[in-house]
């Protein structure tokens, strides 16, 4: 998979599926007044109320396999939540309501500029928060490759217009 900016010049990436209404308003306002739109840099976890507590779970769970605790981090409970990779700015409606984040806002700056390897990063996060060994997490995740590729591609070297994401 290739990002759009490899083929055409992209002025701005407005993240989100769909982008939040206020984000569109702020973006248009700043472009109209000749400024750069405000940029979100951190991850969805910063906007989520759930507490990250290292836990011990046996395996990873699908969304409808068990009911989620309302206060604890979804990853600590064994769900594959992509909040730790995804750009903030949405207010975390999905993890707040008990549904895992599935990355519709694309990669956060930490991925774009530093880690760059999505699967390795996710495996590390899941393994630390659930206590499942990394090899086992990798094995389980790779059975469902769609987890990574619904909204995010995995190789960020190809992504040239990093500073264009707002």
């Amino acid at each position: 998979m290739y990002p759009l900016c490899n083929f055409v010049d992209v002025d701005y990436y407005v993240p989100g599926c769909p982008p939040m209404p206020l984000l569109i308003v702020h973006t248009i306002k700043s472009i109209a007044s000749g400024k750069n739109p405000p940029r979100h840099q951190s991850v969805v976890c910063t906007e989520c109320h759930r507490k990250i507590v290292p836990a011990k779970v046996e395996r990873l769970y699908g969304i409808y396999e068990k009911e989620a605790n309302r206060e604890l981090c979804l990853v600590s409970q064994g769900f594959v939540c992509l909040g730790s990779l995804t750009r903030e700015g949405c207010g975390a409606p999905c993890p707040r309501s008990g549904f895992t984040c599935f990355g519709c806002r694309g990669p956060a700056d930490s991925l774009l500029y530093r880690t760059r390897d999505l699967s390795a990063f996710l495996i590390k996060v899941i393994s630390t928060r659930t206590g499942i060994p990394q090899e086992k997490v990798k094995e389980e995740l790779y059975q469902n490759p769609f987890i990574f590729h619904t909204f995010i591609f995995s190789k960020f070297e190809r992504f040239k217009a990093r500073e264009r994401v707002i």
Binding site: I63, P93, S97, F99
Partner: peptide, 16 residues
């Protein structure tokens, strides 16, 4: 729980 692409509807009912 979201205005577009609702998330609370899952197989088996609703989350919230």
């Amino acid at each position: 729980k979201r205005e577009v692409h609702v998330v609370s509807v899952i197989p088996g009912g609703l989350i919230n």
